[in-house]
Simulated scan of single mutants.
Amino acid sequence: MKLRTGGSIAVVLPSPIGDSLIGLVLVDNLIRNGYRPVVFGWVAEQLADWFPQVTVGRPDAWQRAFDTVIELRPTDYASALSRSGKTLCLAALPEYGGSKHMVDRIVDIASNVLGLSDVTRENGLVVPAGVMRGRFDNRVVIHPTGSHPEKMWSRKKFLALSRVLSRRRLQPSFLVAPAEFSVWSDIAQEGCEVNALPQLSEVAAWIAESSWFIGNDSGLGHLASCIGVPTLSLFMRQGLARSWRPGWGPGAVVLPPSLLPFGGLRERLWQRLLTVRRVTSAFQTLHGKHARALHHYAAADFGDAASTQATHAARIGMLPGAQSRRF
């Protein structure tokens, strides 16, 4: 399908953070090729400052306004944006399936379906000027939750991992959603820092000013990768990791060992099979590989970093809705 030159285009992003960031690859390619799409979705709204080239719309203001409406997966409002009532749903296309990484599937659609000539894997994210990348030399963001409980490593193991990182003079910083804060705030009594920030832009800034990210297979891993923070992602199985691992900045995936012959059984037991030692080893490899690349940021010893972080955390904590706990 060749897009009509001069035609109005809407791109409707899915709700999950990772899916939206991948969908923004298509948006960036449309812009690179001279189109001016209007983008819909809460992720684009809250990260508007991080995607300054993107025009973000609200559905109520754009009813029946577009010649072409593209949605990654079916939504309940995309058709109302279309003059014809029809949409192009990427999930229905053969190129959306298969075993390639999701970013590469979007690139294939941009090239082979939409006929775009200047195509990239990037999504156009730009760190705002007020955010100091890698400001906290030793801070490791730990994201222990996610939208799918079956993809989440155990709380006990994340806490054990944080103790290992602390012994190695790193500063683990747990990051959870505001609705999850009450469940996780008690870990401050064990000497852990835990934060919940109300806006995705604030979450992005917290990650960007850190130096490392460890988390489950979830959207914040994609966000960290987009920003360029070295990212370690915990996956239950290889197939998921092949298609959905964070696909932009430096990073690695850690999987449970293949000790069991049946995939279904491995999925049910992956949290038990994936040990703290295995995750620690994977992070040590990632850290060693990319630590030198981070040295051009302002360096500080562990004590100075902790002091600076406390000041910064107090500032973050004063934002409306922010929650933070420290021992």
Rank of each mutant, 00 (worst) to 15 (best):
F181G: 04
R168S: 10
W184S: 00
M152N: 09
I187Y: 05
F174S: 07
M152H: 08
H143Q: 15
K151N: 09
S154W: 06
A188W: 03
W184D: 02
S166W: 01
E180T: 02
Q171D: 08
G134R: 08
W153Y: 05
D137K: 13
V183W: 03
A188S: 15
N138W: 11
L165A: 10
M152W: 02
L170R: 13
R133L: 05
A160G: 03
A177H: 01
I142G: 02
S147G: 14
W153T: 10
A188I: 04
R169P: 03
R167I: 06
V164C: 07
F136D: 11
R168D: 04
P178R: 11
V183G: 01
C192V: 07
R133C: 09
S166P: 00
H148V: 02
R167Y: 05
S173T: 09
H143L: 11
Q189M: 07
S166A: 12
V164E: 15
D137L: 11
K157L: 05
R139H: 13
P144M: 12
S185N: 07
E150L: 11
G146M: 08
R135C: 12
I142W: 04
R139T: 10
K151G: 07
V141L: 00
F181L: 11
G134K: 05
P149K: 07
H143V: 14
V176Q: 10
H143M: 12
P178Q: 03
S185M: 13
P172A: 03
D137T: 15
L161H: 05
C192A: 13
R167T: 12
R167D: 08
S162P: 01
R163P: 01
R163H: 15
R135Q: 15
I142T: 06
V176Y: 05
P149Y: 06
C192Y: 05
L159M: 14
N138T: 10
P149C: 03
Q189D: 12
K151P: 01
P178V: 13
A160H: 08
F158A: 02
K157D: 13
T145K: 13
G191D: 03
P178D: 06
